[in-house]
């Protein structure tokens, strides 16, 4: 039962989506399924929030390794939630008089939520993303070794792309006239050629494989052949 009902739902929703693609009368069914998922996913936010609190409160009460970080997580979560939900410091909306600050925008410029977003959230996000630059450097240093012919080709391509994607690409080879028959040898044009031809070809091959794999996995799920993600029928 516990396994069959979800399986049945998955099968119905899956087939509705397929049918809606081909049969004009059923287009709205497909839209309905999309909307159901959105509703489910929105409810799941509450589930997630509850779980977050539970896991970290437990860590704190057990004084598990790194429980200090859990305190920070809980405080940050509650502060942001409180500020956003109560619309703290938000100005009333003149369009809806009589509703006080509740009619205002929760993230209005200058409000505490806006401040938290701009001064805490944004810099933190940008910091983590920026770490990529460092990791790319260390990964390239370690991984790009000319061990064999394929690796050498990869290396050469990397040089072209790295230089071609900067201003260096233009001024290193600007002695080759743009209009000449050799303009394809200009670094920026080589870069475009590599990206457009070799890279696109490779990507397309992977994407075709992925598409077929997706079709096959989806079909296995719709037919109930692969149920490993569903869990056991008991419990």
């Amino acid at each position: 039962m516990k396994r069959n009902v979800p399986l049945l739902l998955a099968i119905i929703a899956g087939f509705v989506m397929i049918v809606a693609f081909f049969i004009p009368y059923t287009v709205s069914w497909g839209e309905d399924v999309s909307i159901w998922f959105d509703i489910l996913a929105s409810i799941a936010f509450i589930l997630g929030g509850g779980n977050l609190l539970k896991v970290h409160l437990k860590k704190v009460s057990d004084q598990a390794k790194g429980w200090g970080y859990s305190i920070i997580t809980i405080v940050a979560f509650l502060v942001m939630l409180f500020v956003g939900l109560t619309k703290l410091g938000v100005n009333p909306n003149p369009q809806f008089p009589g509703h006080g600050h509740w009619a205002g925008q929760y993230n209005e410029v200058g409000s505490p939520f806006y401040w938290l977003f701009e001064s805490v959230f944004k810099p933190l996000q940008a910091t983590i993303f920026a770490m990529l630059a460092f990791y790319v450097a260390s990964a390239a240093f370690r991984a790009f070794r000319a061990k064999n012919m394929e690796a050498i080709l990869l290396l050469a391509t990397a040089f072209f792309i790295l230089l071609g994607r900067t201003a260096a690409g233009v001024f290193l080879t600007d002695f080759i006239p743009e209009e000449s028959g050799y303009s394809g040898l200009r670094l920026e044009n080589i870069t475009v050629f590599i990206m457009d031809v070799f890279n696109t070809a490779g990507h397309r091959a992977i994407m075709i494989g992925v598409a077929l794999g997706t079709a096959s996995v989806s079909l296995k799920i719709l037919l109930g052949v692969d149920r490993s993600y569903l869990g056991s029928g008991e419990g």
């Binding site: 370690r142 070794r145 000319a146 790295l162 994607r165 201003a167």
Partner: peptide
């Protein structure tokens, strides 16, 4: 600007690794 210098550094690092 930073992108140029960073890319050049990457090229040099790859050389160094090799």
């Amino acid at each position: 600007g930073p992108q140029l210098v960073a890319h050049v550094l990457m090229v040099l690092l790859i050389f160094a690794g090799n």
